[in-house]
């Protein structure tokens, strides 16, 4: 945990410089840049004198980055209602009474303890960012740097049409192939815009790989989008005469990538996602493991519900979009 004291007051800067370790003085002109770059837990103490009348604007700006925690330095006692800022999530307040004497190593340890014990957003943020050393094998520039016969960490998406047996009975082989191909194209087009690549296709479904970059989950966005756009695909592009149903499941894990994939890949992570998709998943639903859920965009989290456990992992299911019905 790094602490940045955003000030241009020598009295504060001097005090901080004596503390050393993980505390830094940051010039107010660098504040926004630093906040924008911040991708792991950092705490910014805003000296309201440093920004004059604009400090609230800077405060609001910093709030947009949910990895950043804020504290206030108010040596003149100008903040009228500190409670307002507590509700806005500040982690500390250095006021008029003790002034710069409040700055101490002990103080910062107390702030860290407070975050660890009382703040669920700190706990989650920390869990997201703290990758176990060596656990993830990240391809720095995604597909551009991925080479065959090397292991990488991917989001692995399983997708398969439901009702296979009924379709095989109802359709002539050639027509069925054309219809399945229309679904395969739908999958390919939708995953491609999120850097996904259809890696295996067998029969009624397949596996898509999305390179893992250490912090995002494009696979979830892709699946989310596919689930919502499904009804438009049914109407316009699908060659099936009926509304199709398909299951999706996403898991995060390491895979030995092979360019020339024969469909005979044997890997724990691939098996896991196949089991999740074929044994656990209900028709028409979209699931992900907890490992994946940790990294999904916070804005789509409300659209997923806890769905129980499977093979020792917590599973999340996407809430079903309901098209054409209205809430009463």
């Amino acid at each position: 945990m790094e602490f940045y004291i955003v000030t241009n007051q020598p009295i504060i800067a001097d005090k901080i410089e004596k503390l050393k370790n993980n505390t830094h003085v940051l010039d107010p002109s660098d504040f926004r840049r630093k906040v924008k770059e911040s991708s792991r837990n950092e705490i910014f103490y805003l000296d309201i004198e440093a920004f004059k009348n604009d400090w609230e604007k800077e405060f609001k700006y910093a709030q947009k980055n949910d990895k950043v925690f804020l504290a206030l330095i108010d040596l003149q006692g100008k903040v009228k209602d500190i409670g307002t800022y507590i509700y806005k999530g500040i982690v500390d307040y250095i006021g008029k009474d003790n002034g710069v004497n409040d700055f101490s190593k002990r103080r910062f340890i107390d702030v860290e303890n407070y975050l660890e014990n009382y703040r669920c957003d700190y706990f989650l943020a920390d869990e997201e960012d703290e990758l176990e050393p060596g656990a993830y094998k990240i391809a720095e520039k995604g597909w551009a740097t991925i080479r065959s016969d090397e292991e990488y960490t991917f989001y692995i998406m399983y997708v398969e049409l439901d009702d296979k047996k009924e379709m095989e009975k109802s359709f002539a082989k050639s027509n069925l192939k054309l219809a399945i191909d229309s679904f395969k194209r739908f999958v390919e087009q939708n995953v491609a815009r999120f850097e996904g690549k259809l890696w295996i296709w067998q029969g009624f479904g397949g596996v898509v790989l999305f390179p893992f970059n250490g912090h995002d989950c494009p696979a979830a966005l892709s699946g989310f989008r596919m689930a919502i756009y499904k009804h438009l695909h049914d109407v316009e592009e699908s060659l099936f005469p009926h509304f199709i149903s398909y299951r999706m499941a996403i898991h995060l894990g390491n895979v030995l990538y092979q360019e020339e994939n024969t469909g005979n890949v044997i890997a724990d992570t691939i098996n896991s996602v196949f089991h999740l998709g074929s044994k656990y998943a209900e028709p028409g639903e979209f699931y992900m493991t907890d490992d994946t859920y940790r990294f999904i965009h916070p804005k789509i989290k409300p659209y997923f519900k806890a769905s129980g456990e499977f093979e020792g992992r917590n599973i999340w299911r996407m809430r079903r979009p309901i098209i054409g019905a209205f809430r009463s």
Binding site: I228, P321, I322, I323, F326
Partner: peptide, 8 residues
């Protein structure tokens, strides 16, 4: 009428 709604 058409509208996108969500399972609770």
């Amino acid at each position: 009428q058409y509208k996108l709604c969500w399972e609770e």
